[in-house]
Amino acid sequence: MAPSTSPIILAEGLSKTYRVAAKDPGLAGTLRHFVQRRYNDVAAVRDVSFQIQPGEMVGFLGPNGAGKTTTLKMLTGLIHPSAGKALVAGYTPHRRQANFLRRITLVMGQKQQLLWDLPALDSLRVNAAVYGIDDAESHRRIHALAEMLDMGNELKRPLRKLSLGQRMKAELLAALLHRPEVLFLDEPTLGLDVNAQARVRSFLADYNQRFGATVLLTSHYMADITALCPRVLLIHEGRLFHDGSLEALTQRLAPCREVRLELAEPWPLDSLRAYGEVESCEGMVVRLLIRRDALTAAVSQLLADLPVRDLEVRDPPIEELIGRLFVQGTLS
């Protein structure tokens, strides 16, 4: 990142350690716990540092329990960091000054702030008052945002009568009414169907374009990240593992690319090994893993040496790579 402007989000050595009381099950455990408390320190986030420039859209990846939500909560000021420093829009988040809160927003896919029994419009009026937005302006903004979100009369219907997708759009509208500069989105597409996901995604891209807002987004759906975020942060076991483009992440996670060959005639397996690692060889279809730096040479060699009918080079799907990473729980 070229530091031409000052970063809008800054994390420096951000850490959070929870003290968890350890209690054995059962009555005896309860009694012992009462007399002598033992604590375990659990490090949720360890020494995480990064900078985000205004207007960036950054994806925040990591398995459940990796520390994503804890980091988001530290950046929004909901929890105090145990060590390190956070600076968002020039403010220290956990002081929760009104001027800071006016500049940010947090959307949580699994929690809602709108009142269940009332139309979203009522909650929006309250929010307008809370953020000190006058009526004409809030009307304009609601109208504009509703148009961007492709919403109409839904805002006038009680929230409980809306579908999950409509509810999420209403939540987004409520979260953006005060036109925050920094958006923290925690699983904003959770549980939505594919169409609704796509709509939320295009809205976020649109919002980012139009207002130059900075977006930090976590999602379980890789499509959200690939569509929106040129840059990703991957956090694993509380540590920042990757900060860069999705492509670079793929390269790091999978140093090889996959070459799929269809041959005109069967070929001895042993001579194939010279080109790369043989992943599979079924009849005349061969799948080879070849290191990225040797790829060009290997492919031209293959074309020259073998009776190739068809050749395809591809990346292993990023979802699979990260999934594998999460399942294994280890990083090489």
Binding site: T76, G77, L78, R96, A98, L101, K111, Q113, Y131
Partner: peptide
């Protein structure tokens, strides 16, 4: 219980 206290704490009020 539902964790929505977060929303309250993030309001500039």
């Amino acid at each position: 219980q539902q964790g929505t206290l977060d929303f309250v704490l993030l309001k500039p009020i």
